[in-house]
Structures are given as C-alpha cells and as structure tokens.
Design a protein around this nucleic acid. Sequence first.
DNA 1: AACTACTTTATAATTATTCTAAAGTATGTG
DNA 2: CACATACTTTAGAATAATTATAAAGTAGTT
Lengths: 140, 140
Amino acid sequence: MQKNNNKNKIFIDKLRSSGLRPTNQRVEISKFLFNRKKTFHFTVEELRNSMNLKRSKKISTATFYNTVHALKSAGYLKEFSLENNTSYYDTNISSHHHFFDNGKVIDIKSDKITFQKLPEAPKGKKIKNVEVVIRLENNN
Amino acid sequence: MQKNNNKNKIFIDKLRSSGLRPTNQRVEISKFLFNRKKTFHFTVEELRNSMNLKRSKKISTATFYNTVHALKSAGYLKEFSLENNTSYYDTNISSHHHFFDNGKVIDIKSDKITFQKLPEAPKGKKIKNVEVVIRLENNN
DNA sequence: AACTACTTTATAATTATTCTAAAGTATGTG
DNA sequence: CACATACTTTAGAATAATTATAAAGTAGTT
Ligand SMILES: [Mn+2]
Ligand SMILES: [Mn+2]
Ligand SMILES: [Zn+2]
Ligand SMILES: [Zn+2]
C-alpha cells in the first residue's frame, strides 16, 4: 500500500499506534471518523451503512467492527449507551457530558456542569469518572 | 384464577392498573419484582433465568418480555442502559442516580447529588431529567 | 522475489429481542 | 353456573446487533 501519502499521515498514525496496519480499509475508516471538526456519535451499523453507500467495493462488516474496537481499545474512541440495545461510539474522548434528545446526542463540555454535592465512593472503591446525561423534550 | 387472594392484592393491583389481567404468571413476576425491600436492577433474561430456575413449569420468554414492557409503560419500572447491548430495568422509579461498578448497579438517592452549574436546554427544548452515572474502580 | 504474520471477507453462530398464530384462560353476562 | 369473547400464553420463527471461523489476500521484512 504505497498509495497513502503524507496527506493521510495522521490517520495512519492513529492506526499504527492502535496496533493496526494501515490498510486501505482502515485508513478510509479512520479518515471518515476523525477527519471532521465536530464530534461524531455513531453506531457501527450506521458507520458501515454510510461509508458503504458511496462505495462500489464494500468494506466488510467484520472489518468495521474490528477497526472500531481496536480504535476504542487504543483510546481513540469512547463507547456509550443509549436506551436501545446498540453500542454507540464517540470521537470525543475527553471526559464530557451529553444531551439526549430523541435519539440525537449532543456534547456538553465538562466545565459546563459542576457539582455542589457528590457522594463518596463505597469503601474499597474510588471514582473513575462522572457522566451526566440531560434528557431533553420539546417545549410546551 | 380464584387462587390469588388478599395476600397478593398489591401485586395484582399493579397489574390491573397496568392494563393487565392478573394471570398466574404475571402475579408471580410482579411478586418477584416488587416483593423486596431493596431496589432491583435486572435484564429480562436475568429475570427469566432466575425465576424459571426454581420452576417445574417454566414461564415463556414472551410473557417475561410482555409483562416487563407493560409494567414499564405503566410506570412501575424504569429502563436504563449499561455499556453492553441489553436493556436494564429498575424497580426504583423515582428520579435517582447510579454507581456503576463492574456491571454492578447501585442506587444513589437524588438528593445526594446537587449541581452548582447546569447548561440550559437548546432553544425549543426543555430538560426532562438529569441522570448521573458515577463509574467506580478498585482503590489502588 | 519470497516469507510470514497480519488482515479481509463471506458466512455461520450467538444473543437479545420481537413477531406469529394456535391453544388456553379470565371475566362479564345470562 | 354455562358461555361467549377478548385477552393471554406459548413454542417457534424472525430480526437485529454482534462475534466467531477459516480461507484467501496483503503489508512489512529480508
Ligand atoms: Mn456488545
Ligand atoms: Mn439486540
Ligand atoms: Zn460525546
Ligand atoms: Zn436504580
């Protein structure tokens, strides 16, 4: 694969540091995920459908799952849950909060929420992180 | 079903007010869910396995799903999500928060967490509820 | 160019959940 | 109580998200 040059360097680097060889398929997935200004919240099936829609030669389901899992293990994606039974992934890996608005997910920067009172961790345990979900509904 | 008497009245009432006839199966599920002092967090499959384990005549999978869904619609159960792709249900229907400790779920009473700062809802929207998850890990 | 370990893919398997339609039962009415 | 009827239960099929398998292909190295 001597086709991917400097233009794709940062996507290739993400893959390499996730322990993945930068194959064509992986570079395209990495670009699709990370080559954007705003946070991307997605399921693997959504990712697969939207990428494969435009492609003549489809990338296989297993490759999508494998790549997303590897990027998550390497810390380039975070996993979270909505109410349905599907895993969601988040390209914003910083600690932050969310609005949930009828299936739509919107980031809330960490410093937009602060606590007056928080419980202590049970004995033998400590707090790993605190995540807030603010569920929205329409006015009126 | 003239076998279920006064002793089961409150479980039968929960079913009746959920629009469900108090059949044997439903009364037993209702008792199993609500006849306890502490909050119960469960998946439908866990519920089915633990109830059917002790029974010679098993209750069908569809009945577990139907009954849990009806109790949820009637407001006697709340649904929530963990990181795996399964729906969890909570017998604590009040607004409250959770510790997540390696798959174990522990209630946090609403008044144990208060906010200093919270973002406003986007325009046209209002806040339906705010739920906090505190993820735990072992000390050290 | 050849070697080898890693990767992709089609396909099968698994898990949680929902659907279907036939057989069974709760409840109101006579 | 006897019946009718609508509601329920159930086994089994269907669906959706995900994971496993193993054969064919490719990247990185020498
Ligand atoms: Mn999963
Ligand atoms: Mn599912
Ligand atoms: Zn996010
Ligand atoms: Zn709870």
